[in-house]
């Protein structure tokens, strides 16, 4: 990873905002999909695709690339947007999300978009796949490998028992190249995670399975990137970064509300702005950075 200058942080903030705008535009064009998770994870994905990852977007199959496994496939709009904005494919292709024959399937399918490391949608199996990848890297390259294996998961997703089977195995195998980032946004479909199925103390759970843990503000680029740096420096075991995020971040009426998990702007929901206003409000807030700048930038 290169140094993180204040200019770079400003650039990352701008990118993240562009990605959020794309997320709204693509969801609206698709007519269905998930809003809260992708908006909440825009900063983490920006940090990854524009600073952290060893990758070559124009040479996507480069063998030396870090591997990224998206376990919570429903947040794929943020993955697709980060990939497009970093140069994997044209940004305008984002508007084909969820359409018949599109490469951008409603949940990621690597037969349609081969730059993906995995297909997902059904929750809870990403960690096992990253463990498999990291095991092979150790068998083939031993300690000399300079690849990292990033897995992104939801928090509600961690209800699935398979995660804990993989977490145990990664701990047992001391897979130091694994860096898991949990989207700790406290929501899932039926409500707040601590009501549906309490996860706390999440970092203690990971720790007791032999993981190095970090708990950070998932909207602070410096915090994200420094936590990844510390995780990379841990050699004798896997690391997890619990990124505390605000679901729906950047669109005021969506923030912190589980009702926006699987709805898009333009949906009738009690207590929310009129359905016809929602897209305009969302894009206006993002284009003016929540009122920080006066004229909308496109």
């Amino acid at each position: 990873m290169s140094d993180l200058t204040s200019e770079k942080i400003e650039l990352l903030k701008e990118k993240a905002n562009d990605i959020r705008i794309s997320i709204i535009e693509m969801l609206v064009a698709a007519g269905s999909g998930h809003s809260a998770g992708p908006l909440g994870m825009a900063d983490v994905f920006t940090a990854l695709y524009f600073h952290v990852l060893k990758h070559e977007p124009t040479n996507p199959f480069w063998e030396g690339r870090d591997r990224v496994v998206l376990s919570n496939g429903h947040i794929c709009p943020v993955l697709y947007a980060a990939m497009a904005h970093s140069g994997y494919f044209p940004v305008k292709e984002l508007l084909t999300l969820r359409k018949f024959q599109s490469r951008l399937q409603g949940h990621p399918h690597r037969e349609f978009l081969p730059y993906l490391e995995n297909s997902s949608g059904p929750l809870g199996s990403g960690l096992s796949q990253i463990v498999g990848m990291a095991l092979v890297d150790r068998i083939d390259n031993g300690q000399t490998s300079d690849k990292f294996f990033y897995c992104l998961t939801g928090d509600g997703e961690l209800d699935e028992g398979q995660n804990w089977e993989a977490i145990m195995l990664a701990g047992k195998e001391r897979l130091g190249k694994i860096i898991t980032i949990v989207d700790r946004n406290n929501i899932q479909i039926d409500g707040y995670t601590e009501d549906v199925m309490p996860l706390e103390s999440l970092s203690h759970k990971f720790e007791s399975f032999g993981w190095h843990t970090e708990e950070i503000d998932g909207h602070n680029f410096q915090a994200i990137i420094e936590a990844v740096g510390r995780a990379q420096a841990v050699f004798d075991g896997p690391s997890v970064i619990i990124a505390r995020t605000i679901p729906g971040k950047g669109v005021s009426y969506m923030e912190r509300d589980f009702k926006w998990h699987g709805n898009i702007p333009g949906t009738d929901i009690a207590g929310e702005p009129a359905k016809a206003e929602q897209v305009t409000i969302a894009l206006h807030e993002l284009r003016t950075l929540g009122g920080q700048i006066r004229s909308e930038h496109q």
């Binding site: 269905s32 999909g33 496939g73 969820r98 409603g106 949940h107 399918h109 297909s119 949608g121």
Partner: peptide
């Protein structure tokens, strides 16, 4: 009870 069965769940794609 298995909901959302069949191909006509549509835009969510093949996984669903």
């Amino acid at each position: 009870a298995g909901s959302h069965a069949g191909i006509s769940v549509g835009p969510d794609g093949g996984t669903h």
